[in-house]
């Protein structure tokens, strides 16, 4: 899966407008980002990329790019 496709899937799961995320966004600045969003990200990573992401990995992330870094090995492009 490409990084762009994964971002679109994340936008879809978070129910935010397509094109909102390019990776640079700071998580705490995103209105939609909360503890449930973190669970949604884990579910998406598991479902789409078969990667088990832990809660502590997400806590250490400041930006969307940091989130993508957790699953980076599985993304192309």
């Amino acid at each position: 899966m490409t990084k762009a496709d994964f971002l679109r899937a994340l936008e879809d799961s978070l129910e935010i407008d397509e094109g909102t995320l390019d990776g640079a966004q700071v998580l705490e600045d995103l209105e939609c980002w909360d503890s449930m969003s973190a669970l949604i990200y884990m579910a998406l990573a598991d479902e789409q990329l078969h990667v088990a992401v832990t809660g502590d990995q997400i806590v250490s992330c400041k930006t969307v790019n940091d989130l993508l870094g957790i699953v980076g090995d599985k993304l192309t492009g």
Binding site: S35, L39, M42, A52, T54, G55, D56, I58, V59
Partner: peptide
Amino acid sequence: AQNLLTDAQ
């Protein structure tokens, strides 16, 4: 469950 939750949670 701990893998899915943070230490704080």
